[in-house]
């Protein structure tokens, strides 16, 4: 009898004989990056006028549609006065930022977390952006929520 048993790892066993030619590989082609199928980028924008001193008001809200997930990518906001901006998730404080003297009156909060495009939201989640005006005068404020919906 002349039996054998050979165990081989799957990788790294090909013995290259001769010369490897790469002449037939195509030249590098330009690449354009497109969103994956099923991703819809959008933003919701809101403005609110004459916010009274010492009060908190909602600038803009977004509700994740049913049967959909979404990523909160970014919140941008600004106004005529220094203020505190609060991002709320389902009525709970999610994030906060202040503007103050000597800095920009417009700011942003970023939630990208590569490889994820942002903070994952589930269907029915409500994100809202609120402003609290601490100045003695009334002021106008605005803001936007940048969202990627995944259907």
């Amino acid at each position: 009898m002349s039996n054998f048993w050979v165990d081989l790892p799957a990788l790294g066993n090909v013995q290259i004989e001769g010369t490897v030619s790469v002449d037939n590989f195509p030249a590098v082609q330009p690449v354009s990056i497109v969103p994956p199928s099923g991703y819809l980028a959008s933003n919701v924008f809101g403005q609110i006028a004459a916010v009274a001193s010492g009060t908190t008001q909602n600038i803009v809200s977004y509700t994740v549609p049913s049967n959909t997930s979404a990523y909160l990518v970014r919140a941008t906001f600004g106004g005529q006065n220094i203020a505190t901006y609060t991002v709320m998730l389902n009525s709970n404080i999610f994030d906060m930022k202040r503007t103050y003297y000597g800095s920009d009156l417009s700011e942003s909060l970023e939630y990208t977390a590569p490889p994820l495009p942002g903070f994952l939201l589930n269907a029915g989640d409500v994100i809202s952006l609120q402003v609290t005006n601490f100045q003695p005068s009334t002021a106008n404020f605005e803001g936007a929520l940048y969202i990627i919906e995944v259907s």
Binding site: S2, V6, D7, L8, A10, L11, I16
Partner: peptide, 24 residues
């Protein structure tokens, strides 16, 4: 191309197995 380590000399009736894996 020949897969390294796979070659066997056979000198009589019998059987042989190559077991390759795991891993793509």
């Amino acid at each position: 191309d020949t897969i390294n380590g796979s070659q066997q000399n056979i000198t009589g009736s019998g059987t042989g197995v190559w077991n390759v894996g795991s891993g793509a």
